[in-house]
Design a protein around this nucleic acid. Structure first.
Lengths: 206, 206
DNA sequence: CCAGTGCATGAACGATCATTCACTAGCGTA
DNA sequence: TACGCTAGTGAATGATCGTTCATGCACTGG
């Protein structure tokens, strides 16, 4: 692997570290962290088992790397997709579309970020949970803004926020590309369900 | 363990088989099937590791027993809580209340039934998936009935059914007894969210 | 050209995994 | 009382686990 080659012509092949992360992500999502061995990850990457430890200090460090990286990327993407200004109805629609489409485009990341919390040791767990809280907080802010303006039918902001996020995230459990509906069509159905659940009459401006 | 004693005075102590199932359920839910060892289950039950195999043929058989048993009990309880007759609005409310309250009362069963599908080998997987499909079918039937009568705002029955179930099931991820809201209060919030998402105006008859 | 560094190797470590098995204690039934 | 079955024991099986490490190659900057 010539470094000069990488500089001149771009990545000639993905770095081994990235390859390890990609393979581990896929395997963890498919079968769960405890069920995947470092040997199997190495095998799929095309190196021997010891080689992984040149890039990640431990299996746990690899998991933390994946989960924390995903959550940070998710937050950055969310803030780009739902700019700070705008009225609550617009922002709610943006949030739902973003959440559904992002989750459908990164199902593996999403799945392990929600399912492997229990495989994290305390230090990593605290960091990931904080990022998750921050994400959920974005939706609560939107609901609160709509509540203040009286445009949403709010019974209980925290409960409704958790309910909506669960509904949206669940799309990854059944959606498969190539099926009856496109991702965008599914996202629009979810937008309708969410806005209706908040008592928003349908408008073309949504 | 005298059998006559059990007949006369009720269960003097839970059968070992039941104890194994209970302990395994708790551990699987807490840390996941692959991360729990038969040794640990045996230890918590108070027997040696080999003893488990007098009651279950394998670790996999133990998992199948738990998941299939839960799904069958869930279906039976659902059909008791949502009798066949009745109008779609009533039945929808009954479904939501049942789902939320049952899930909050059996969080471990629910969790592994939804999360350990990937740990099942093909035979057990097929049986559990069929039961799951049957459960989801119950909700789809309610939505379809409401659609025919024109009392629900239906965009897409299958998608909405999956969205609603995901929303409801998600309650187990955040609800903790002793918190701000009772289980019943939470159930009512979910009923409101669900009925609103289907465009049902609020009525005291719900 | 040479020293240094990053990375992959392959063998080995001790620990733990699910499962098997010969054995036995204790019970209900005959 | 004698028999047979249920259930628990404790040791052993081979496999696999995460991790370590001495070794060496390929490439870098000086």
């Amino acid at each position: 692997m010539l470094k000069s080659e990488a500089i001149i012509s771009g990545p000639p092949k993905a770095s081994t570290k990235q390859a390890i992360a990609r393979v581990a992500l896929s395997l963890f999502a498919e079968r769960g962290y405890p069920a995947v061995s470092m040997r199997e990850i190495a095998e799929r990457v095309g190196i021997r088992q010891g080689g992984i430890y040149n890039h990640f200090g431990s299996k746990q460090a690899l998991l933390v790397h994946l989960m924390e990286g995903h959550m940070r990327a998710l937050l950055v993407a969310l803030d780009a997709a739902v700019p700070k200004g705008g009225n609550p109805r617009q922002r709610l629609g943006q949030f739902v579309r973003f959440h559904v489409l992002y989750h459908l485009s990164q199902p593996d990341d999403v799945f392990i970020a929600y399912m492997e919390l229990r495989s994290l040791e305390p230090e990593g767990l605290a960091r990931v949970k904080e990022l998750r809280r921050a994400y959920e907080e974005r939706l609560r802010r939107i609901l609160e803004a709509g509540q203040r303006l009286g445009v949403f039918a709010i019974t209980d902001v925290p409960v409704q926020a958790m309910g909506l996020i669960a509904m949206l995230t669940g799309v990854t459990t059944w959606y498969r590309d190539g099926g009856r509906l496109s991702r965008e069509a599914v996202a629009e159905i979810y937008v309708k369900m969410v806005t209706r659940s908040l008592g928003v009459e349908e408008t073309p401006t949504m």
